[in-house]
Every structure is written in structure tokens, then in C-alpha cells.
Amino acid sequence: PSVALFNQDTLQQRLQALIEGARESWTYAIFWQSSYDYSSGATVLGWGDGYYKGEDDKAKSKAKNKASSSAAEQEHRKKVLRELNSLISGSATPATDDAIDEEVTDTEWFFLVSMTQSFVNGGGLPGQAFFNSNPIWVTGADRLASSPCERARQGQVFGLQTMVCIPSANGVVELGSTEVIFQSSDLMHKVRVLFNFN
């Protein structure tokens, strides 16, 4: 029944409500949706939807970004963004758009790359949270960097300092921030209210 009540249309609104209404400064929220693959017998968490808010301190994020991504990396990111923009707009030639030629920040890139990812049978941070039915809250760049989960390490490389995965009825809500944010029962409660569809 919980799956039947799941409403894709309101998913974006709920992700937005979760981080826009939070006291803490979250950079993004992603809902990883669970599905069962009958051919392999595996439970897969795939991209459901995501809301990217960005960093509050733009100057700080730009400085950080400059340190971590080379000119070649920036060119690569912009090229991919241009191609994706063409794909979405349906045009055959890559669009020339001032907005696309603006620097692609590390967290924007991390969010975009996340759309291509999935987690099988308890793999990765979201998979572990779902498989064990327990939230995972990792605070601090050091802890992310030393995590056994590839996604947590990747998040740290792209400037995140906090990553959280909270299991819900048919998936996992993941939040990330470039700020250091400690565990709060308030956020857990909000996820329970907004994402437990039954």
C-alpha cells in the first residue's frame, strides 16, 4: 500500500520542503527509490528525484572550487552540461548559454553525477541505510574521507562535510552539506513525516 500511495509529483516538493525548512544549511537532498530486479533477485536503489539548493556562501564555495577543479576539469564539466542541455531541449547542436558557461561547482557536479548512480543489495551509504533500516550520519571531512563507502569518500572530494542517509518506506533520503552538521532528531522526524507514505 505504501508504494501505491507514493506520489512522484510531490516528491520534489517534499525534498524542497525538507531542506528549505531546515535550520541547518543543507546543499542538496536526494531520494533514492528502491526497486526489485526480478532477473537478478537484487534490491536496487536508484535515482528517484533530487533537489539542489547550493551553498549559502557563494564566495567561499568558489574559492574552494578553484582549488579543487582544474581548467581542464571545468571545460569537461561545461561540455557535459552543454550536451545535457541540448538533450533536454531536444536541439541537435549544443546550446550556447551564458548560464552553462558559468563555473560548475564541485557540489553541482557531485549532484549531477549522482543521477547516474545506483546501489545494489546494501551497497554504498544509501544501500547500507536501507538494508539495515538505520540512519547513517557522517559528520566531518575526515570521517567521510575514511569511510568504507565510495560515495562518502566521493562526497568529501567534492567538498561535502556532512552526509546523511535516512531510510523511509520505499527508499532512502540522502542529504549533503558543505557545512559541519551534527545529528538532529528534528530532521529524522521531518523525514519520517514527509517520506513514510503510509
Binding site: 528517484g48 539542489y52 542541455n85 538533450l87 533536454i88 548559454d97 548560464a99 549532484f111 549531477l112 543521477m115
Partner: peptide, 26 residues
């Protein structure tokens, strides 16, 4: 660029649109 599954297209379109807004507001 690999084909984007339909379910992710909406997310991608929204992300690109919001990015445009963010850049305009810089």
C-alpha cells in the same frame, strides 16, 4: 553523453533551469 532515462530527465531539466536562475542572481 549516454541516454538519460525518462525518470531522470525531469530532475535534470529542473536542475538546469534552477542553475540558470542561480547564475542570473549572482
Amino acid at each position: 553523453v549516454a541516454p538519460v532515462p525518462q525518470a531522470r530527465k525531469a530532475s535534470l531539466a529542473r536542475f538546469l533551469e534552477k542553475r540558470k536562475e542561480r547564475v542570473m542572481n549572482l
